[in-house]
Design a protein around this nucleic acid. Structure first.
Lengths: 113, 113, 113, 113
DNA sequence: GTGGTCTAGACCACG
DNA sequence: GTGGTCTAGACCACA
């Protein structure tokens, strides 16, 4: 929770959980923390967490049942897909700087060292 | 302007201008479009643009003087610095996926092709 | 059981049983499934079924006695009455669309074809 | 607003507005009452109305813009379509009573008289 | 003025 | 205990 970020809290939570699910941080069928638990941990109102969960459910990533908690529905996306997505975004950014491809490869190689 | 993004419009504008300045899209001392002009171009309220400018001024990137418009203060950061920053961020993300360095280099090379 | 419908489950059950009784699906004095049985069949909690039964008893359609199960009290309403009720409701809806009577008759005839 | 109905208030509002739009009670581009106005008229909290509007927007029926109010997006569905939908639902109900087609036609004709 | 959101506490429905 | 919702009032972002 970054109170500096103008992004509303429910959206920050939604994004973090979505990212975690897509990266396979949860097994399919795993239970997310309860609304009250997470609200308490983050020091925010339960309604805010409930909204984040609701939107995730609307997006098909999780499923909530009264009295039974909230479970993860989505299979983690393959790491290869996530890596490609990140890589393409990085390359687009770098090219926007006017840098040529060799320079990009060189920059990656150097920073990895 | 992405009205789907819950990020407030003033923040979207701020980020775009900040990125443009850092990439050298403006000379130091160059004048930004007037609040009214930009608001008109984007079809939004002047207050929204004013808020973006105010935050940029607070961050030391620009300076507004009554009757004289808004000028760019910040020197463009060297492309090499921006590239390195982006590259390090990308590598951190990729490693968070549990990917080894060779795979990263391979992904970059393939996506550049 | 439609978990998409925000209508609470106990109400969905209540409506279905009430409709079945009114249509004569049960003899007067017939026994409804036990709370446990129905809860098990539907895969829901016994309390939810109990709530539906309680409301039906409150409405005078059924009667529950400890140890003896739940019996149907209401006589099935004559089919003619139910049909007339449905027909009047349908006509009211259709007229609310601004449709004249001939058009209604025509719509029914066509849809029956 | 029917406080007897277990359906949550935000859903009742959503359904009523959706039905009104589909029946052409609003012109495309017409403005809905403001969140505060409607909340005040109905004697409920603004958040409840806001949620109903949010879900309608999510369904593509309306569009809300901060500072500018809420406008109707969806074209009213043709009356003929709505009539057919109602008619088919009515016929299905009637047939579920074990009534033959001639009886249905007769019932409609009699009730129209 | 408009919509968007948060909070804090409360009650309901469900297991 | 769990999720779902409502309220009342508050602040923010925007026109």
């Amino acid at each position: 929770m970054d109170t500096t970020d103008p992004t509303p809290p429910y959206e920050q939570i939604r994004r973090q959980i979505a990212a975690a699910i897509e990266q396979g941080a949860f097994e399919v069928g795993a239970k997310l923390p309860s609304v009250r638990q997470l609200a308490n941990d983050l020091g925010i109102a339960t309604g805010t967490v409930a909204r984040a969960y609701r939107e995730l459910e609307h997006g098909g990533l999780i499923h909530s049942r009264r009295g039974q908690g909230t479970t993860v529905l989505a299979s983690p996306r393959p790491t290869a897909d996530l890596l490609e997505e990140q890589t393409l975004a990085y390359i687009a950014q770098a090219r926007a700087l006017g840098v040529d491809d060799d320079t990009i490869v060189a920059a990656v190689a150097r920073s990895l060292g």
